[in-house]
Computed example of a mutant assay.
Amino acid sequence: MNENSDLNIDNCQRGMTLIELLVVILIAGILTGWGVSHWHLYQQALRLEHTAQQLLAFLIRLQDKEIGFYGVRNNAQAGHIVLSNGAGSLRLVLSAKGRLRVCSERKNARGIALCQL
């Protein structure tokens, strides 16, 4: 009976083969590389949005002062500032009426709407 049970154990698979282990390591490596690259892109988009929001807040504070950037006669030229990095481009728009807004040039970036032409 002892010999019979030893034969059954030898015929059963006891673990993973080398090929199975290599396939699992390859899949884990691919998923890790994909995750790191997307994390880097996410961090760039977050930095871009944060910079645009800081600049917008600064210009709004500057606009709230008595003279601000409109001068004594309260007139201004319309214009825009473009901020960009690897994640995309954001445009900070100043209208002639003094409205400030942020919009995305190519695609929706973290909830910021596309610029309308």
Score class of each variant (00 low, 15 high):
1 M>S: 13
1 M>Q: 02
1 M>V: 03
2 N>F: 06
3 E>C: 04
5 S>N: 04
5 S>C: 08
6 D>M: 07
7 L>M: 03
9 I>H: 09
9 I>S: 07
10 D>Q: 12
11 N>Q: 08
11 N>I: 15
13 Q>E: 05
13 Q>T: 02
14 R>I: 10
14 R>S: 09
17 T>H: 10
17 T>R: 12
18 L>V: 08
18 L>Q: 14
19 I>L: 15
19 I>C: 06
19 I>F: 15
22 L>G: 07
22 L>Y: 15
23 V>Q: 00
23 V>R: 10
25 I>V: 10
25 I>C: 04
27 I>V: 13
27 I>P: 10
28 A>K: 09
29 G>I: 12
30 I>T: 15
30 I>V: 09
31 L>Y: 10
32 T>E: 04
35 G>F: 09
36 V>R: 03
37 S>D: 12
40 H>W: 03
42 Y>L: 09
43 Q>W: 15
45 A>Q: 14
49 E>Q: 14
49 E>M: 07
49 E>N: 11
50 H>A: 11
51 T>S: 15
51 T>L: 15
53 Q>G: 07
55 L>M: 13
55 L>A: 11
55 L>K: 08
56 L>C: 01
56 L>V: 05
56 L>G: 03
57 A>L: 08
57 A>I: 03
59 L>M: 11
60 I>R: 02
60 I>D: 04
64 D>L: 03
64 D>V: 00
64 D>K: 12
65 K>I: 05
65 K>S: 14
66 E>V: 07
68 G>S: 00
69 F>E: 06
70 Y>D: 11
70 Y>W: 14
70 Y>H: 03
71 G>V: 08
71 G>D: 00
72 V>N: 11
72 V>C: 00
74 N>G: 05
75 N>Q: 15
76 A>L: 12
76 A>E: 03
76 A>F: 02
77 Q>M: 11
80 H>I: 07
83 L>D: 06
83 L>F: 01
84 S>E: 07
86 G>L: 02
86 G>Y: 03
87 A>T: 05
87 A>L: 09
88 G>Q: 05
88 G>R: 08
88 G>L: 08
92 L>Y: 02
92 L>D: 02
93 V>R: 08
93 V>F: 03
94 L>M: 04
94 L>A: 05
95 S>L: 01
95 S>F: 00
97 K>Y: 01
99 R>L: 08
100 L>K: 02
101 R>V: 04
104 S>L: 01
105 E>C: 06
105 E>G: 01
105 E>P: 00
106 R>K: 12
106 R>F: 14
108 N>R: 07
108 N>A: 13
109 A>V: 06
112 I>T: 00
112 I>A: 11
115 C>N: 01
115 C>S: 03
116 Q>K: 12
117 L>V: 04
